[in-house]
Design a protein around this nucleic acid. Structure first.
Length: 489
RNA sequence: CGGGGUAUAGCUUAGUCCGGUUAAAGCGCACGUCUGGGGGGCGUGAGAGCGGAGGUUCAAAUCCUCUUGCCCCGACCA
């Protein structure tokens, strides 16, 4: 092995970086805090986009595109929104360069913008400024729009996929006639995300509401889905916000209601980002490299010939092309790696690093016996199967693997979820990683104090949890239900 | 923004303390060859003037000054 992957238990961060670099998903760029998403990593994002986009369309949403630049005055209209983002905004102040006397390129100070432009950290403001023009009557509602875009948040410390200064995401922005419709929309999307992430990414989640401290700047309520990574830290995987009438009021978006009154519209917004690729890596991968759930794998099956002579090569390739056609016709994504410039062993390692779910190899021995060597990535066990079984075995293994990855991750999550009733147990569990269910008195001050003492934050307040009287682990004040704490990314 | 570290070939690093031939190695790359069921072996070769600027010296990767990038810790972070 010429490529080395750090031990996952000893150095999780290094392991994570090694997986991404060796699987060729992304790399750091010449721009501080920004990454290059390489073709293989982008292919995974494209798979995600395709599945999600279809779900959005099926639920009545349409795509559109809004500008990347937001005039500062728009941005400052919603007070809590500004507070939330002010410290991490990139600002465009000039529109021209020139050469100075020494021939260096400098900013032309005479080309200062009259009003600075904010590079969008999210698009609520520009979108609501636009919606004001679009919404006049209840007949214009609901307005259900999504956009696929990049956003910029000037982060102090960055990590590939998990936190970069620029990232790709989708953001949905909807406008509704009534409060309950907007809430219903926010919840609908929450469950759409949950379904997508659990069934397609095979990443098990917890879901619920964010606390006052953790919710989106400008929202009334933030719903979230959270996943537990293999190092015991939580990762926010998606959020959906009920915005109330906050943005409608800030941007004066009113509509004539059925009863003829002018009313402010009700809003939601929601998003998931390329961070999901980070979640995927940290949930399933192992010491050998990336492990991809079949539904998202750019290649679900890779075909690798093993041969000595040209005659063997020709005969094996001919057979493999038939297999390839047959699998493709079933909608299975197949990669034929018939290159003569790399050896079989090298290819085996390469596709393990890249997490391709199924590897089918065929050598002279197989050709004679009408068999292939079949290996599924998560188990890495070889089995010899006959030609006639290839399609059925592939189909069932892909399904099984998708299922098994989820179950394995789910089991990990369950084994690392604890319920505690006093602060000592709480600290102990938090330090060892995992989700910790505990009573909390509901005050932001207590949440802050717990964060200061243990670095744990409230990941979410479960929506479907049974009510249970208890005492706050920090203050001893009464509490009606447990909330979920964890250290997080 | 505070504390610490680091910068030498495409990559990973040695050399720096204590200045002295043509700056070294592994991986990768190219070519040849033997190979071929798990990143194979052997041989040949190309490739850097040591982050940048200035200084000390007969002589600087090595010493001094300034500067820049990156990494880690902290602060910060929906």
């Amino acid at each position: 092995m010429s490529k080395k992957i750090a031990n996952k238990l000893e150095n999780f961060s290094q392991w994570y970086n090694d997986i991404i670099l060796n699987a060729d998903l992304a790399e750091n760029s010449g721009v501080r805090g920004c990454m290059v998403i390489k073709p293989y990593g982008f292919a995974i994002w494209e798979e995600m986009k395709q599945v999600l986009d279809k779900k959005f369309k099926e639920t009545g949403h349409v795509n559109a595109y809004f500008p990347i630049f937001i005039p500062k005055s728009f941005f400052t209209k919603e007070a809590s929104h500004v507070d939330g983002f002010a410290k991490e905004c990139a600002v465009v102040t000039h529109y021209r360069l020139k050469n100075n006397d020494s021939g260096e390129v400098i900013v032309d100070e005479n080309a200062k913008l009259e009003e600075e432009l904010i590079v969008r950290p999210t698009s609520e403001t520009i979108i609501w400024d636009t919606y004001k023009k679009w919404i006049k009557s209840y007949r214009d509602l609901p307005l259900l729009i999504n956009q696929w875009a990049n956003v910029v948040r000037w982060e102090m410390r960055t990590r590939l996929f998990l936190r970069t200064s620029e990232f790709l995401w989708q953001e949905g922005h909807t406008a509704h006639e009534t409060k309950s419709e907007a809430i219903e929309e926010a919840e609908k999307i929450l469950f759409l995300y949950k379904d997508f992430i659990e069934n397609t990414l095979a990443v098990p989640l917890i879901y619920g509401l964010k606390s006052e401290r953790e919710k989106f700047a400008g929202a009334i309520d933030t719903y979230c889905v959270e996943a537990l990574m293999q190092d015991g830290k939580a990762l926010q995987a998606g959020t959906s916000h009920f915005l109330g009438q906050n943005f409608a009021k800030a941007f004066d978006v009113k509509f004539a209601s059925r009863s003829g009154n002018l009313e402010y519209v009700w809003a939601s917004s929601w998003g998931v980002s390329t961070r999901l690729i980070g979640a995927l890596v940290m949930t399933h991968s192992d010491e050998k490299g990336l492990v991809l759930p079949p539904k998202l794998a750019p290649y679900q099956v890779v075909l690798i010939p093993i041969y000595h002579s040209q005659e063997e090569y020709d005969a094996i390739i001919e057979k493999m092309k038939l297999i390839s056609c047959e699998l493709s016709s079933l909608g299975i994504r197949v990669k034929e790696d018939f290159r003569d410039t790399y050896k079989p062993g090298w290819k085996f390692s390469e596709y393990e690093l890249k997490g391709v779910p199924v590897r089918i190899a065929m050598g002279p021995r197989d050709l004679k016996n009408n068999t292939v060597e079949f290996v599924r990535r998560d188990k890495c066990e070889k089995q010899i199967i006959s030609f006639s079984e290839i399609t059925s075995t592939t189909q069932s293994i892909l399904n099984q693997m998708q299922h098994d990855l989820f179950l394995k991750a789910k089991l990990f999550q369950e084994n690392n979820t604890f319920s505690v009733d006093n602060f000592d147990d709480f600290s102990y569990r938090i330090n060892n990683g995992g989700f910790v269910l505990a009573h909390w008195d509901g005050s932001p001050e207590t949440e802050d104090e717990i964060k200061k003492l243990t670095k744990a934050t409230i990941r979410c307040i479960p929506m479907d949890a049974k009510k249970e009287n208890g005492l706050c682990i920090l203050t001893g004040k009464p509490s009606l239900q447990r909330v979920i704490f964890a250290k997080s990314y």
